[in-house]
Each structure stands twice: as structure tokens, then as C-alpha cells.
């Protein structure tokens, strides 16, 4: 009994703490407070100066003077006056933290890169381009949704969406592969399905005519 408790108690405590840490981490993302540095801090200070709350010279450092200005601004806007610039305060300041200047990008290239990243990271380069090409080919097949997002997020279509791998850290190669696939390169030879023969038990997919085998994946029609 005692041993059991000795083993389980620390485990449980660690478990609960981990939960709390995870939640806090979620909340704390993208906030700026005393000690923060960077372009966004300068932007915050410039905005505050323009609005008359900040007296100093805008630099990249979040100092005590910045904090005072932020508190004043927050009070005036009816926000929680904690001197920390979180997403609400950023929005109130009219600062878009995520992207710098919005330039038109080829649509869906990032999403496609994420799908390739989640599905075929570690595969040979043409294997990654081929996975991207399968997604592109599906948008041109009447049996599938017509958009890249529709194809990728179709329920049950890709394991990377179901297990969250699509949100994994994006590596550079899948981005290159996504560009090639959108630019028309298709090493899959016009495939609209692929599977890993070592992992798939789905009988139906085994019956499809095979076009090619690249790395771990079999591409088929």
C-alpha cells in the first residue's frame, strides 16, 4: 500500500502540474511585459506614443516607462490594467502581432505544406512532392472536394489531421515540396490515393491499381 502511494502520489502530482502548465502556456502565448524585446515592442511603444500615453523614445525594449504607459492605456480602454500586453491589448492598439505586412501569398501553400509535413516528413523529397500532388489531383477529381482545404480536412481522409500531426513543427523540405506540387510537378503520376502498406489494413485501398512506389508509400488510382 505504502509503496503504491509512494509511486503514484508523485506521478499524480506531476500529472496535475503538467496539466496546469499546459493551460498556462496556452494563455501566455504572445504577450509582452517588462523585459520583452523585439519589433512588436517597438510597435507598441510607437502606438502608445502616437496616442499620447508614452513619452519616451520608442525602442525595442519593454521598460518600466512602457509598463506605466500600457497601464494607463488599459485603464482608459476598460481593459485589465496589469501592464502586460496580451492579445486583447494588442487588438485595442490595432497591432497585428502574427504577421508583419500582409502580402498576397499563393493561397493554400502553407496548408499544403503542413499536410505534407504531417503525412510524409522523413520521406524522400519526391515522396513529399507526390503526397502534395495527390492532394492537388483530388481537387481536380469530381469525386472529391474542390478545394485544397476541403480535401485535406475531409473527415477520415488523412491520418495527419486525425492525430494532429498536421500541426507539427513545419520543416523546410515540405514547404519546398508544396510549392513544387502547386507548380505542377507530379511524381505520383496522377495518383489520387496513397497508403503505407506496412500500416494499412483497409482492404479496399489494397485493391486500387498501383501507379508507383516511392519510399514507404504506394501511390494508386
Amino acid at each position: 500500500m505504502r509503496r503504491l502511494v509512494q509511486i503514484f502520489l508523485p506521478l499524480l502530482i506531476v500529472f496535475f502540474l503538467a496539466q496546469i502548465v499546459i493551460q498556462i502556456k496556452d494563455i501566455e502565448a504572445a504577450s509582452y511585459k517588462i523585459g520583452s524585446k523585439g519589433d512588436i515592442v517597438k510597435k507598441i511603444e510607437e502606438k502608445l506614443k502616437a496616442l499620447g500615453y508614452f513619452k519616451g523614445n520608442p525602442d525595442n525594449y519593454f521598460g518600466k516607462d512602457t509598463q506605466d504607459a500600457v497601464k494607463k492605456f488599459q485603464r482608459a480602454k476598460g481593459l485589465k490594467a496589469d501592464g502586460v500586453v496580451g492579445s486583447n491589448t494588442l487588438r485595442a492598439l490595432g497591432i497585428n502581432a502574427g504577421q508583419k505586412a500582409i502580402k498576397p501569398q499563393r493561397s493554400d501553400v502553407n496548408l499544403l505544406a503542413r499536410a505534407i509535413n504531417g503525412e510524409a516528413r522523413g520521406e524522400p523529397y519526391i515522396g513529399q512532392v507526390a503526397v502534395g500532388a495527390v492532394i492537388v489531383n483530388r481537387t481536380r477529381d469530381p469525386r472529391f472536394p474542390k478545394t485544397i482545404a476541403g480535401v485535406i480536412y475531409q473527415p477520415g481522409a488523412f491520418t495527419a489531421v486525425a492525430d494532429g500531426q498536421i500541426n507539427a513543427k513545419l520543416e523546410p523540405t515540405p514547404q519546398k515540396a508544396a510549392n513544387d506540387a502547386l507548380n505542377g510537378w507530379d511524381p505520383s503520376g496522377g495518383a489520387i490515393y496513397y497508403y503505407n502498406p506496412a500500416k494499412t489494413t483497409n482492404k479496399w485501398i489494397w485493391s486500387r491499381p498501383i501507379i508507383k512506389r516511392i519510399g514507404k508509400h504506394v501511390f494508386c488510382r
Binding site: P142, R143, F144, P145, K146, G150, Q154, P155, G156, A157, W204
Partner: peptide
């Protein structure tokens, strides 16, 4: 689009999707 947002096996709805397209 709606049909392909439902959690149904794709092989089952492929023909219906093609018809609608």
C-alpha cells in the same frame, strides 16, 4: 461540400460526390 464534410467512408460517397460535381 456538405456531403464531404460528413464522417462517412469516402469510397461510399465518391459516386454521389461525382454526381453533384
Amino acid at each position: 461540400d456538405k456531403l464531404n464534410s460528413l464522417p462517412i467512408n469516402h469510397s461510399a460517397i465518391a459516386q454521389t460526390t461525382k454526381f453533384l460535381t
